[in-house]
């Protein structure tokens, strides 16, 4: 599904060079649930950005579904993100001026889907996170956990094969976080590949594989379950 080989990312300014990722090589198979852990500044989010085609990299090869994505134009990357990748952000990143229906609708509009099909998908997605009855509400009228559920519905509505979650429970209390994790687990059980960045070791322990980043490198890769499906190179 995802294959990175010797990926490096260097941020350059006039005065300094910052090596955010140093020689990352990683294979993620279809249907895996991987967590990424590590201290602040270790490169977790940079890795996630590159995996999600939000950012370019300095060196190395990245194959997504067998396709070398390095040569893609900005337009092609946007289309690929829209069609294959779902994002869940730590601070939910909902549009505060749009109601839940319109928020979930955002990625579908960029896909050029017809109104009737969009409506059907949006309602199913909101229903799957238990918020269909509140589709006309604004994000500000929901709790943090509910907002993250909406964000998950938005990530799932396009039926992506690959879900990237950047500390999705980081802004939630433990009970709510547990609910979100169960939701992610069920999404993974349904076949969606998930890579999740987290600070929480207890959450990391619930994934099939945890990759620990340190100073821009993969320091450790633990196969926790379904080991036969996985291959990690560190």
């Amino acid at each position: 599904m995802l294959k990175m080989t010797h990926i490096r990312k260097v941020f350059r300014t006039d005065l300094v060079e910052t090596h955010a990722l140093r020689d990352i090589s990683l294979n993620v198979a279809e249907g895996e649930f991987i967590t990424i852990t590590g201290p602040s500044g270790c490169g977790k989010t940079t890795f996630l950005n590159i995996a999600g085609l939000l950012e370019t990299w300095t060196d190395g090869q990245y194959l997504l579904d067998g396709q070398d994505v390095a040569a893609l134009s900005d337009f092609q990357r946007a289309k690929l993100r829209n069609q294959k990748i779902g994002f869940i952000f730590q601070s939910f990143n909902l549009m505060p001026d749009l109601n839940l229906f319109d928020n979930v609708d955002v990625p579908l509009r960029y896909r050029g889907m017809k109104g009737a099909e969009r409506k059907d998908r949006i309602e199913r997605a909101l229903d799957s996170v238990g918020l269909l009855s509140r589709k006309k509400h604004l994000p500000s009228q929901l709790s943090g956990g509910q907002q993250q559920r909406v964000a998950i519905a938005r990530a799932l509505v396009g039926e992506p094969r690959f879900l990237l979650a950047d500390e999705p429970t980081g802004n939630l209390d433990s009970n709510t976080a547990e609910g979100v994790m169960e939701l992610l687990q069920s999404i993974n059980d349904a076949g969606t590949t998930i890579i999740m960045v987290t600070h929480d070791p207890s959450l990391a322990s619930r994934s099939a594989r945890n990759i620990h980043f340190l100073d821009g490198r993969i320091a450790e890769s633990d196969h926790i379950a379904v080991a036969g499906q996985l291959e990690a190179v560190s």
Binding site: A78, K79, R81, F87, N93, M95
Partner: peptide, 14 residues
């Protein structure tokens, strides 16, 4: 929000 829209698949043209 614009960054989020781009992440969700908005092209520069969009």
């Amino acid at each position: 929000q614009i960054g989020t829209r781009r992440a969700l698949g908005a092209t520069q043209g969009a």
